[in-house]
Amino acid sequence: MSGALKPILIAAGLVVLLMIAGEMVSPGFASPEQILRLSIVAALLGIVAAGQNLVILGGREGIDLSVGGVISLAALVAGNVMSGSDAGLFPAILACIAVGSLIGLLNGLGVTLLRIPPLVMTLGMLGVVQGLLVVARNGIPSGRAAPMLSDFVSQPQWLGLPGILWLWLLIGLAMAGLLNRTVFGQRIFSIGANEGAARLAGVPTRVTRTLLYVLSGVFSAIAGLCILGYSGSSFANVGGQYMLASIIAVVLGGTPLSGGRGGYTGTMIGALLLVVLQGLLTTLSIDESGRQIIFGSALIVLLLFYGRSSGLRG
């Protein structure tokens, strides 16, 4: 148990350290309003990372590079279905979950039935979705969030916290329950640890793996909906920055890229850590390109560092 807990504690410690450092560099960095704002951004990333986490846990080089595309597409679809009215919110939710599960299903079938490596399959899917976005949008931002959705994401609601934080917490509980208290969760770990042996032990390996990609699509779509609420309207490639970030959050949280062990609680802390780091870099006026460089390097360093000690790369 201590082995699984260690990365989580390290990440949590780093979050606190970064907050203190931020407060010292720029007073107000750790103010309650700022913490709330960072938490909302972390929730958005955390929801995407939930799906990424499942796919990575399932092993066999599981990874979902199409999350950014799904987020953008879901935001576009939802924005146009609701087009600024609360009445359209429910159909919009259904529409974007449908979009997410369809893309996830295609990813899953490609990986399991056609045996396309996940990296190639989901990267290809990302290309397809991005192409669709260009065609659908024609370069013009379109669709507007319903007021109810915007409030849900950014206005304090229950106990002073916005709905999205409650949603994130709920997802956290659901993921923990799924992974530790259901047979499905058991199957995810077993196919991640040794797919061949799992198959001989009666685990429906293909169905399980396909479902992981479907769930990843659904989580990305939900995140896309919330991001629409956060920004008010859907702009081009809104999901682009989430691909790398979601993978880093999972790895930071102690789930190795080789799969088979780990969990979502760590990933949540990982998402927080990443967002706080991003906030700090912004405060230090390092621009987006600089942040991407730092994130990319961070992932490589992390893999190197964890890989030596605990076989993070498998």
């Binding site: 208290r181 047979v183 969760g185 058991q186 199957r187 799992a198 009666g202």
Partner: peptide, 25 residues
Amino acid sequence: GAISGRSIFENVVPIHLFKSRQHIL
């Protein structure tokens, strides 16, 4: 055989879980 890296418990139960068609662990 071994679902390596997972616990002894997790290595014993899969056949039972499959045969008994359970969903909650």
